[in-house]
Amino acid sequence: MIPARYQASRFPAKLMQDLGGKPVIVRTYEAAVNTQLFDEVYVVTDSEVISEVISAIGGKVIMSKQKHESGSDRIAEAVEDMEVDIVINVQGDEPFIDAVSLEKIIDVFKADTEREIDLASLMTPISEWEEIANPNTVKVIVDNQNFALYFSRSPIPYPRDEEVEATYYKHKGIYAFRKRALMDFKRLPMLTLEAKEKIEAIRFLEYGKKIKMVETHVTGIEIDTPEDLDRARKVWK
């Protein structure tokens, strides 16, 4: 499922911006399909414009019936009546998604024979302080089994003792959900931490869900700003 909102707060209409001759959302949809990992790939949107460009290439679209605050809410509505077990959320601004990373989070559920894991997601090491301190970069800290402890736009862990070595991880906005966790997310109200940070993954933690983080070294480019789009166009060439 690829949630696709037209009016992004930081970069309106970013999904319809040109990337190598096609809109960003089309590039992301094609990348997801080309991994050949999924039974079905859908774009879930509230935008007729986005719906039309995906339909024009023969893609599958689900139109949202309600207004949603997050991509997870949008996907939950879309899959509520579907007979599915695992749902993958690929953000619409991720045209550089790769099969290797996606397969890693799918494998988390194949190995989870006790069905204890609610979600899996991706993280990648970062070392440049400019990126670590950037509030547009969501960071995650994990326990010794790589379960998420917290997500933040602030640098975590805070470097109080600069002599202690720590790896900083950027959270990549790609999730794999058990359907039941997604349905819980839909019915549970937003709490303070999620509202403060504006990070939907925090809601799962606030309600005690287990999020398994998987490390990947494929960074890609998430298109959050016009500057990101400029970088993406250079890489695409």
Score class of each variant (00 low, 15 high):
Met190Val: 13
Glu80Asn: 14
Glu165Ser: 15
Gln145Tyr: 15
Ile106Lys: 11
Pro12Lys: 02
Thr35Pro: 07
Lys210Pro: 11
Asp85Asn: 14
Ala133Arg: 11
Ala32His: 04
Ser64Phe: 01
Ala13Tyr: 10
Thr35Met: 03
Ile141Glu: 08
Val43Cys: 00
Tyr175Leu: 04
Ile86Lys: 09
Ala166Gly: 10
Val100Ala: 14
Ser64Ala: 13
Asn146Tyr: 14
Ala195Val: 04
Asp112Pro: 09
Ser9Arg: 09
Ile126Cys: 01
Phe151Glu: 01
Gly92Met: 00
Asn146Met: 14
Arg153Ser: 10
Met183Gln: 15
Gly208Val: 10
Glu116Leu: 14
Ile202Asn: 03
Arg153Phe: 04
Phe11Cys: 01
Glu194Ala: 09
Glu94Ser: 09
Lys172Asn: 04
Lys210Trp: 11
Ile141Val: 12
Lys60Asn: 12
Lys209Trp: 15
Ala176Thr: 06
Ala76Lys: 06
Tyr207Arg: 11
Val53Asn: 00
Lys65Val: 10
Pro125Asp: 08
Pro125Phe: 05
Ile54Ser: 01
Ile57Arg: 03
Trp129Gln: 07
Phe204Lys: 03
Ile62Arg: 06
Ala201Met: 07
Asp73Gln: 14
Leu119Phe: 09
Ser121Tyr: 05
Met63Ile: 11
Asp112Ile: 08
Arg160Lys: 15
Asp46His: 07
Glu48Gln: 14
Thr216Phe: 03
Val142Lys: 07
Asn136Gln: 11
Ile174Phe: 02
Leu182Gln: 07
Leu149Ala: 08
Lys22Thr: 02
Gly59Trp: 00
Ser152Glu: 04
Thr219Trp: 08
Glu200Ile: 07
Pro157Ser: 05
Met213Cys: 10
Leu119Lys: 05
Ile221Asn: 04
Lys212Pro: 04
Val61Gln: 01
Asp161Met: 12
Gln7Phe: 11
Arg231Gln: 12
Gly92Leu: 00
Glu77Asn: 07
Val214His: 05
Tyr158Asp: 12
Lys210Asp: 12
Arg180Lys: 15
Gly71Lys: 02
Ile57Thr: 04
Lys104Asn: 09
Ser9Phe: 08
Ala232Glu: 07
Val138Gln: 02
Ile106Ser: 06
Phe109Met: 09
Lys14Arg: 11
Lys104Met: 11
Pro226Ser: 04
Phe177Asp: 10
Lys14His: 01
Arg5Met: 12
